[in-house]
Simulated scan of single mutants.
Amino acid sequence: MKLLRTCVVAGSISLLAGCATGLNSIQKQEYAQMEADGVLVKEKNPTTGAVLGLLPGGGSFYAGEVGLGVVNLLLWPASILWDPVSGYDGAQSDNYYVTKSQLKKQKAAELSDLDYQLSIEQISEKDYAYKKRKLEEKYSY
């Protein structure tokens, strides 16, 4: 009975603490496309996050989820069941958002350069519209 109560308490704590936020299905498709296109910024390795999840709280700490890491540290070894997934998902999520931020900055810089070219009449309105459309397609993640 005491073991059952401990399991219920541990499960409740882990549910209340939350998990490392994973990507939704659309974000996973974008992630795969960014990776295929070679633009994905790999700040963290998802496999490393999963492997570290076998250590007490390791996957969550690696993914930057300190609160969940502490809970998983306290619930170890039971946290081995979910912390590798949290580490993997958290690392993927970090890479996704870092890449999105990087692409946004690159797009803004290229658009600014394009606007400058138009302002000094280096390109025509027609060329500007065409190049701007191409930029939008390039950064359509």
Rank of each mutant, 00 (worst) to 15 (best):
S25N: 08
K100L: 05
I80E: 08
V71M: 15
Y31M: 15
E125N: 03
G38W: 07
D113R: 11
L23M: 07
V8C: 13
K132Q: 00
D127A: 11
Q27N: 12
P46G: 04
V41N: 00
G64W: 10
E121H: 15
T47V: 09
Y62S: 05
Q106N: 00
Y88F: 09
T99L: 00
Q29F: 02
Q106F: 00
S119V: 02
I13L: 05
L73N: 00
A109W: 06
Q117G: 07
L52D: 04
G49N: 12
I120G: 01
Q33N: 09
V9F: 15
A36Y: 08
S112K: 13
D89N: 05
S25H: 14
C7E: 04
Y31F: 15
G22A: 14
A20W: 15
L118A: 03
L111M: 14
G49P: 01
Q92D: 10
G58N: 13
A63P: 15
K42I: 03
S119G: 07
R133A: 02
V70K: 09
A32I: 05
D94S: 14
A91L: 14
S25M: 14
Q102R: 05
K44Y: 12
S93V: 00
Y130P: 01
Q92V: 03
D127T: 09
K131A: 01
G11L: 10
K126P: 04
C19W: 09
P46N: 02
A78D: 05
L16C: 04
S79H: 05
A10W: 15
I13P: 04
T48M: 14
Y88T: 12
E30P: 15
N72H: 14
L103Y: 01
S112P: 04
L81R: 00
N72A: 13
S79T: 03
G49C: 06
N72M: 08
L75N: 12
E43W: 10
S25Y: 11
Y97R: 11
Y62W: 10
T6E: 07
Q92A: 07
D113T: 15
D37E: 13
K100E: 06
